[in-house]
């Protein structure tokens, strides 16, 4: 009798567990019906003004309107979105053009679906007391004998070496200072030209030195004909060919986000998005950073946000070939996928 009762009890428990499992499964399925397709988007850098459009698209529902759910993940110095895409940790990512070219040269199966910065934000800050970089002659006369900040292995090194070669300035005639994240050597005047992201740290340095009654300006290699492409949006070839729908929805949402973020009428909305993610930067600095970013994303009224500047990519590839950073051309036609 006791055994019979125990048997019935066990049977009841099994039935309860099975029913619970079925209900949980069905509930899960029901939930799925309303869920959007989740994809991961790995940024290149920390949350700051350089990613305002990415954040804006997320916060103001541009991705959701396209029917996709995007998890926007912060980047950083140790992050490499291309590697994450290849390993399957992310579906989309931001990478600089030199990163893309280097990766493709090593067989990484990635494609570029949009170019965020139409002007490279990587420029050099300098004190404007007696200097001007408005002509190549001015550059040659200033740079000789001066101390230039370079990040060895970074793309600023590649850009500066290209400039020096282009204007026939021997490396022996300049002093090179190895740059880190700390700007003290520039503040102290030990270095004359210091590489910065003009729309991010550039504004912070400018603000600090203005308070000390010092005037600074930025040297933009683009103005002297060196066009080295910066941040672009990448995905895998597989994703691009097998899920074109998601890629197009993502690209549309992202471009909408960037267009809205840099539109003058949305200035305060964009500032408020940045404040939400970048709590350490004072709002006045954020405003100035956003204004600087606007000029890099949409330099003129005719420029299309996100468009891929193919001649600039070709120049970037040529620079990397000249400096032996890659050994053979990578056939950009297969990599760049303009919309």
């Amino acid at each position: 009798m006791k055994d019979e009762n125990r048997g019935q009890g066990t049977w009841k428990s099994i039935k309860t567990i099975v029913w619970l499992g079925v209900w949980l499964f069905l509930l899960g399925r029901t939930g799925d019906c309303g869920e959007l397709t989740p994809v991961t988007y790995r940024l290149k850098w920390l949350f700051n003004t350089s990613v305002v459009g990415d954040l804006y698209a997320d916060v103001h529902g541009a991705f959701a309107r396209q029917g996709i759910k995007v998890v926007v993940k912060e980047g950083g110095p140790e992050r490499d979105s291309i590697k994450e895409i290849e390993l399957g940790y992310a579906q989309f990512g931001v990478a600089s053009a030199d990163q893309v070219i280097r990766a493709v040269a090593k067989g990484s199966p990635i494609v570029v679906i949009a170019q965020l910065f139409q002007v490279n934000p990587l420029q050099w800050v300098y004190r404007t007391d007696t200097l001007s970089f408005d002509s190549p002659a001015a550059m040659i006369s200033f740079v000789r004998g001066k101390t230039l900040g370079l990040t060895y292995g970074g793309n600023d090194e590649t850009i500066m070496r290209t400039l020096l070669t282009k204007f026939g300035i021997s490396e022996a005639s300049v002093n090179v200072y190895s740059v880190r994240y700390d700007y003290t050597p520039f503040y102290e005047g030990k270095v004359d030209l210091w590489p910065v992201y003009v729309n991010a740290q550039g504004i912070v340095i400018q603000n600090k030195l203005e308070k000390a009654k010092e005037r600074v300006s930025f040297f933009n290699p683009d103005e002297l004909g060196v066009r080295f492409v910066a941040n672009s949006v990448v995905t895998s070839q597989k994703m691009f060919s097998e899920q074109p729908d998601i890629v197009n929805k993502f690209r549309k949402g992202l471009i909408e986000g960037w267009q809205d973020a840099v539109a003058l009428e949305n200035n305060e909305k964009a500032v408020s998005v940045l404040q939400q993610f970048d709590k350490d930067t004072p709002v006045e600095i954020i405003r100035r950073q956003l204004a600087a970013t606007r000029g890099l994303i949409k330099p003129g009224p005719e420029s299309a946000v996100g468009s891929i500047d193919i001649p600039a990519w070709k120049q970037t590839e040529q620079i990397m070939l000249d400096q032996k950073l890659i050994s053979v051309p990578i056939h950009l036609d297969n990599v760049l996928k303009p919309f």
Partner: peptide, 19 residues
Amino acid sequence: FIAADAGIGYSIRTALYQS
């Protein structure tokens, strides 16, 4: 890695920049 321009830590940092 963080404060020099010599040594193997510095070389690793440069290699990291170049992936």
